[in-house]
Nucleic acid binder design. Structure first.
Lengths: 223, 223
DNA sequence: CGGCCTGACTGTACGGTGTAAAGTTCGCAG
DNA sequence: CTGCGAACTTTACACCGTACAGTCAGGCCG
């Protein structure tokens, strides 16, 4: 039972891409992309920063990795689901994922090295639309429109400089206070009438989503 | 005619917020947000980095400034224009502006200190929709939907890791090469059939925009 | 068993970043 | 001429990504 008996474990479990990426996601979910530094990441793993470069070529490769993890969390269309249901579920799942990983939005479509989950996702969506009879031009339009809406919604919602509903009016008022009264009458009226506590900007997501799906359905049936 | 005669101009024209912001926009339009540093900005203006802190509290204030300049470039609805025309023109103008200042998208809705152009923009859009008879809840939905689409489209288009149409297929092929053949059959088929030279992803913007405007029009008329 | 190799990691260093704090210089008011 | 305040510079600090060289344990070969 002495320590050296059973070859007492290598002085430390070696790193792995997976362990590093998990730690990176944790860091970044907490403090945003800005709080992901190689030094902090190393610290989180009990290792010097430079150790990470044994497993990743550079920081970008780490980011590629966590982006693909985010993609893997989005619900894929299952075979045979009709396109409208599949797209609706995907959109809502994607919005949830993006809101859970607020840092990811800017990166999802910008990486030159798409990971397997990313490609799988695109493959499944395109497959579902093609199976539903959409021709290529229509696949492109539908996909572009839906993704733009989902990303854009997540982007605007995440970037809103307030979180809780209660604060909305306050922040808005604060912004306006620095300007002459009645400089922005419509904005003022709108805020006063509409931004009451209880209003959640996020509720409008499904309204817009269904409006878009309606439009696509009509377009695909008359084509 | 000697140099000291007419009080030979202060050793140098002093900085101004405007001059600084112009230089900042120039830097950032060329090399992205990442290439905006206080030192480079100072250098651009023939001044040490710390001189900027006499005119701006910090770098964030500089960014607030250039974001508001971007807002000021978006075409505002003019009084009396019917909402659909106004929204369509605004959307296209906004897309153009965002594509011209690719770095701005992430920042447009995230700044805690909205500038005057930003507020003026919101005021004008809300004013137009209200004048068209949209009630507050509908104003919120329409605005949210349109902005999400515009931002999302700009975001996905800008983030596309290729520029010229010609490259699209190549880049896509490059991504796929690292994976087993037939791992992503739908994606492969789609790329082969649709991403021919000549296809411009950006052309789909107006299709989606009109689909959304159609939906909003129907909703507002049946309300 | 001795020697060596190699996988995994550490140490040190360089040029970059934002910005706090103090020092400098110059035009102008008194 | 004095003094002051606006505008700018100097210096410094803590942090960043990462190049490059060094270290050290475990496994393999003779």
């Amino acid at each position: 039972m002495t320590a050296q008996a059973t070859n007492r474990a290598p002085r430390r479990v070696p790193l792995s891409r997976e362990r590093v990426l998990d730690a990176a996601i944790k860091l970044v979910d907490q403090g945003g992309l800005g709080s992901l530094s190689m030094r902090k990441l190393g610290q989180e793993l009990g290792v010097e920063a430079m150790a990470l470069y044994y497993h990743f070529a550079n920081k970008d490769e780490v980011i590629d990795g966590i982006v693909d993890i985010v993609f893997s969390e989005i619900e894929l269309p299952t075979d045979g689901t009709d396109w409208r249901t599949a797209m609706r579920r995907r959109a809502i799942s994607m919005r949830d994922v993006l809101l859970r990983h607020r840092w990811a939005i800017n990166l999802m479509e910008s990486r030159r090295n798409a990971g397997p989950a990313n490609l799988r996702h695109h493959d499944a969506v395109i497959g579902n639309l093609r199976a539903a009879g959409f021709e290529n031009a229509m696949v492109a339009r539908a996909y572009s429109l839906l993704d733009a809406y989902i990303y854009g919604f997540a982007l605007t919602k995440i970037n809103l400089p307030f979180d809780a509903t209660e604060e909305v009016a306050e922040v808005a008022q604060g912004m306006l206070q620095r300007f002459p009264v009645n400089e922005y009458p419509n904005l003022v009226a709108y805020i006063a009438e509409h931004l009451k506590p209880g209003y959640d900007y996020g509720d409008d997501f499904e309204y817009g989503l269904d409006l878009i799906l309606d439009g696509l359905e009509k377009a695909s049936s008359t084509a």
